Computed example of a mutant assay.
Amino acid sequence: MEKNATYTSLVAVGDSFTEGMSDLLPDGSYRGWADLLAARLAERTPGFRYANLAVRGKLIGQILDEQVDAAAAMRADVVTLVGGLNDTLRPKYDAGLVLGQLEESVARLAPTCGRLVLMRSPARRGPVMERFRHRWESLFSFIDELAARHGAVVVDLYGARALGEQRMWDVDRLHLTPDGHRRVAEAVWQALGMEPADDWRAELAPHLPDGWLTRRTGDARFARQHLGPWIGRRLTGRSSGDGRPPKRPELLPYVPLPEPGDMGARREA
């Protein structure tokens, strides 16, 4: 891949990971790695355009039906596609169906963009990861196959030990912290052939583990604020993204506005 290539447009496709949860901004909206990446690319290229079609809670079939054709029509220099992990968490996971929908998504997107970026998603180490490890690793192996077949780039976040650290995950235990999102943005930046700004795989500084009471208090808060509502949505067939539009549905010029104390900042077109 050409080093320091010029990219004029980016379209991000996916679920909550790409929407930017839990990289929360003061106004209550989410930024996330895709916005951070767009800001950096926009600094290099006047008139740079960016769309983010991702919506939290979406399954890969919904991404295929609601986002893929719209993204393909934009004919961007770079398209990122991350999806399928929400499906693997469902009790009635149908691997054949999910992999087929992912394959169709890649087949539709790859011919329409200059560079398609896929990811082996990060996973928080712990009992949930162990329970779903087989599903995830099968999904990631298939993503590798799709990338080889369609000339896409794969960013291996799953293989980065630092991104599995509990400190990289928000209190909901499903979404990365702002530091995690910054690392993902850097990983994609480098995968696109840009000069590294830092080591996104760098290990975290050692720290003393939380005490028993702190852990139990955190478990109780997690169950009350996040696990309970998540189970409720599963039982009633609802999703956190129902009725929610993409945060940036059109491919428009992206002008980053600096956030206090944070270089990568939010835009306003």
Rank of each mutant, 00 (worst) to 15 (best):
V184N: 11
L59W: 13
R182N: 13
S16P: 06
H150K: 08
F48A: 13
P209L: 02
V154T: 12
S16T: 04
E203V: 06
M194D: 09
L208M: 09
R215S: 03
T6I: 12
P256Q: 07
Y254V: 05
A185D: 01
A152H: 08
K247H: 11
R149E: 15
N4A: 14
L227C: 07
A70N: 06
A42V: 01
E103C: 01
P245T: 09
E186C: 08
A197N: 04
T45A: 04
A42Q: 02
G96H: 08
L89M: 09
W212I: 04
R133G: 04
D23L: 10
D156N: 13
E268I: 04
A42P: 00
G228N: 11
A38L: 01
P196S: 05
S239G: 09
D170S: 15
A76M: 02
R167M: 11
E186L: 02
R267W: 06
A5F: 03
V78E: 07
P253K: 00
M1E: 14
R233L: 13
V55H: 06
E165Q: 13
D77F: 04
P229C: 07
L204I: 06
I63S: 06
P196F: 07
R221H: 09
G47P: 00
S22G: 12
Y50H: 09
A205S: 10
S9Q: 03
R266Q: 10
D179E: 15
A185F: 03
A38Y: 00
V255R: 15
A39Y: 03
A54D: 08
P245D: 12
F48V: 08
G237R: 01
I60Q: 15
D172L: 00
P127W: 04
V171W: 05
S29Q: 10
F140Q: 06
L235S: 08
M119E: 14
P122W: 11
D65A: 13
F48R: 07
V155K: 04
L53Y: 02
G159M: 11
S22Q: 14
W169N: 14
R173E: 12
V153W: 10
L37Q: 05
R167S: 10
H175I: 14
W200K: 03
P111Y: 03
D87Y: 06
R267I: 02
A265E: 07
R248A: 15
V188W: 03
L64D: 06
S9M: 02
F17M: 14
L174E: 12
R238C: 06
